[in-house]
């Protein structure tokens, strides 16, 4: 295992060392110490690495991740795992706003709470939050799934496309065109799979499912004259 101490190395040194592993992988396991809330940690990885960040991370941690398995042993600032493509990002504490924004694949697990706009414009990522999510979560979410074991804030799933949303606790309010839907056998199965992958012990039957009413984004011939 290789350890990079951010009191003596810069974030640029860290990211460069991790990027070099994409060309030729010489070390699979990495530890980052003393992150002290710095921004852009472990961004743009493209290799099957295991990266453990010991402490709190700043903005955009693990952004654009491909293949790597990144664990933050602390809290993460805004834009965690934004535009992630694949791999896994896990935060042991809380994440600030816009976690998983626009992410296209992979698995994001937040063991604490996520702030506002979790999964905004998500495009295929699976997000599992053990705590609660803030307002406007999943805004304009296109595909993928969001699992919330706690509560969801105002305007959940506003202007939603095809993300599957599962919430165990209370939903403060649903956004435009987001509705509660039946929990059928295939959804229990999907949710069980997500909880298993995230390592979260919850009963899938205790969740409710939300999705798009498909009244907002689909073309309607009645509205043709408006164009």
């Amino acid at each position: 295992m290789k350890t990079i101490d951010l009191t003596s190395s810069t974030v640029r040194d860290l990211n460069q060392a991790l990027h070099e592993q994409a060309l030729e992988c010489t070390e699979r396991e990495w530890a980052v110490t003393n992150p002290k809330g710095q921004h852009n940690l472990a961004v743009g990885l493209d290799q099957k690495l295991a990266v453990d960040i010991h402490g709190h991370a700043g903005y955009f941690c693990a952004g654009m991740n491909k293949k790597a398995h990144i664990v933050v042993h602390g809290n993460a600032g805004q834009g965690l795992a934004e535009n992630m493509m694949s791999g896994t990002v896990r935060v042991k504490g809380d994440a600030s706003q816009a976690a998983g924004a626009t992410a296209q694949g992979g698995l994001l697990v937040i063991e604490g709470n996520a702030g506002a706009r979790c999964g905004i414009s998500m495009k295929g990522v699976d997000i599992v939050v053990k705590g609660s999510v803030g307002h406007m979560s999943c805004f304009m979410g296109q595909s993928g799934s969001l699992v919330v074991c706690g509560d969801a804030g105002e305007a959940l799933g506003d202007s939603l496309y095809e993300v599957h949303i599962y919430v165990k606790g209370e939903v403060k309010s649903l956004g435009a065109d987001c509705i509660e839907k039946d929990m059928r056998a295939e959804h229990i199965e999907e949710l069980s799979g997500l909880l298993n992958r995230a390592g979260v012990d919850e009963d899938p039957a205790a969740f409710r499912r939300y999705g798009s009413a498909r009244q907002l984004y689909t073309f309607k011939v009645d509205n043709a004259s408006a164009y």
Partner: peptide
């Protein structure tokens, strides 16, 4: 505004750290 500004405080490693609600 950012956690970075708190890292020099004594005992911050074990402080309760959270984001204030809207």
């Amino acid at each position: 505004s950012e956690y970075q500004a708190l890292t020099t405080l004594p005992g911050i490693e074990n402080a309760r750290v959270w984001e204030p609600e809207p």
